[in-house]
Nucleic acid binder design. Structure first.
Lengths: 352, 352
DNA sequence: ATGAAAGCGCTAACAT
DNA sequence: ATGTTAGCGCTTTCAT
């Protein structure tokens, strides 16, 4: 019989013990066979293997973790898994990249707050994971616990948590600069900015900085009234702000959104207001989300190369897990401008 | 000193023992204080609490699980977390709903294959989770292990895994019927169907059945050439099939896509082909993805009420975890038609 | 009200 | 080549 029944008639999962008894060997031998470690005689191995199959034995990862500190589970903490957009796509890619390395991903939302990020960084959930990928937006350097205390951690996004932790970052400032430069080159001078709060989000701060730098380089004075704050970085916020700007008769000939969701919301608002895109208003975002490529018109944006980023992040974390004492590394992935129909009518009819 | 240093100078996480020593009590007392269980004197409690804070103690969930079989981690196994679309939004909602109940979500991709789903159902990862939410598309009833063997499991999607497991399903057939009826009422008779493989996906089979039922009820004969197979249910596939249909000069006055990603891809293809939507071709999908509401024109679709679904799923699983022996339950969430501009020009200018 | 100790399933010294 | 056993951190009976 596979396993033992508890008083309820419920069957407990078979353990090494059960397998050992069935195969007539010691549990150590079973452990070695299961993990393909140590040298076990071929005959014994196959006997154990069939016992494993007969019982449907599966190692208990909690027990293994308790003993060895390893589970094959890594954590991914993001501000929030909104319905659509960057973190959603990123986590899909992280799950994929992790899966390719035999790792499973535990997803946590931090809400983008200091408390949430601290909870991810040192909360009890850490004890089931081998390492953590943290998309930090609120955490400040002094919050980071003494490195020796910290289990393997890789920070995603702006480098802000000191030189102690590995970082995989994306050129946020560069991306915003590229997009803004592109709009300026098209002759646009009144660029509406859909901007996250730079005091609460490092990403927002970097992107705003890049935008300003491009304006400055082109000799265009920044107009405070063109910067429209958004709380959440989603379609609804982009729609609301652009719609409001139109109603207020604010003059603008371009929209630079800090991400594609905002841009797509803004695009929709412009349709509803009857403004021609890109004729009257050019629109661009950052992220190169899938839906950007299928919008009407297609959305010009900066591609952060999320696949590269996700793969690099998982690889860096895997490295850190196997080599906890190596010095911290920093990887930066460059952004790439994708010009499409929302800024250039010519680009709209190029091949997909 | 917080914790002990290992030979490497690396600091081990503090344990109940460390806290007990610092507070001058036994580890049992500490355990009771940490879990707010049993009656401990107020003075002792506060002494322990400050020791916990001083050391930054965090319970080791692997050890707890080993002892009690509980971690606060649940699994979510989906066919695949594509870049955008249904499962993406669903998992975001599940993570949210789980978070509200203090649960964390371990995400797994099954690839939509029998092996992948079996792996999720009985693989070693189960030993770190309290329960599993399984979006089964390939698994057949006989694959399901004897229920007594199985840890808490709730199946999402079509009811196909017998009466043994809890199911939270969505009215797939109903949804497809609603959408098709709507298109027929508009006078459309040549409906192009972007259809997943009904032999490989139960969802596809149900949706196709609903579509056919609506056709039949309206006395419209189904035309095999109008059913275009798609491998993946994403934008690219929808784009490719609609584009191909146009090039082949296939006549159609509507597109019914089995999900919104396909529909949005198709919509883009129609733009590129210069077909008027909804004038020449009406387009509708299923899922009510965020981007459907911001597409141009806005996409008519069937809303599966994902929030309700996600919440119900998590709640059902939580119930199952606390009451393993209760009889299995089935919940079905009804679909709701959302008429928008992609089928009705009038609807396009209604309030968002 | 608090403490001592067993044992969850596993790995890895240490024995044989 | 295989077996015995300690102990990872925790909860929980059983004593006190």
């Amino acid at each position: 019989m596979a396993g033992t029944r508890d008083h309820d008639g419920h069957r407990a999962a078979p353990t090494l013990h059960d397998v050992a008894r069935l195969a007539g060997v010691s549990i150590k031998t079973v452990s070695e066979v299961v993990n393909r470690t140590g040298r076990v005689a071929a005959a014994t191995t196959s006997r154990v293997d069939s016992a494993v199959r007969a019982l449907g034995y599966q190692p208990n990862l909690s027990a293994r973790r308790l003993r060895t500190g390893t589970t094959g589970v890594i954590g991914l903490a993001v501000p929030e898994l909104s319905m659509s957009g960057y973190f959603n796509e990123l986590s899909a890619l992280v799950v994929r990249a992790a899966g390719e390395r035999g790792l499973t991903v535990l997803i946590e939302e931090t809400g983008g707050t200091r408390e949430g990020e601290l909870r991810a960084l040192r909360g009890p959930r850490r004890s089931v994971m081998d390492g953590l990928l943290l998309s930090a937006v609120a955490l400040e350097e002094p919050d980071v616990p003494e490195p020796a205390t910290l289990a393997p951690t890789v920070v995603l996004g702006e480098r802000r948590l000191g030189a102690v932790l590995d970082h995989v970052t994306f050129g946020n400032e560069e991306a915003a600069r590229l997009v803004t430069e592109h709009l300026l080159q098209l002759g646009r001078r009144r660029i509406l900015v859909l901007a996250g709060d730079p005091t609460r989000s490092a990403t927002a701060a970097r992107r705003l900085a890049g935008h300003r730098r491009a304006l400055h380089a082109a000799g265009v004075a920044p107009s405070p009234e063109l910067v429209r704050p958004v709380g959440t970085w989603d379609h609804a916020a982009g729609y609301a702000q652009v719609r409001a700007a139109c109603r207020e008769a604010l003059e603008f000939d371009a929209v630079f959104a800090m991400n594609d969701s905002l841009a797509l919301g803004g695009l929709r608002a412009l349709h509803d207001e009857g403004r021609d895109v890109p004729g009257a208003v050019a629109v661009a975002g950052i992220d190169d989300v899938v839906d950007a490529r299928y919008a009407h018109p297609r959305l010009t944006t900066a591609d952060p190369h999320r696949e590269v980023l996700a793969d690099l992040a998982v690889r860096t974390l895997a490295e850190r897990i196997t080599h906890p004492r190596r010095p911290a590394v920093v990887h930066e992935v460059a952004a790439e401008l994708r010009v499409r129909g929302s800024t250039s009518a010519a680009a709209e009819h190029a091949p997909v």
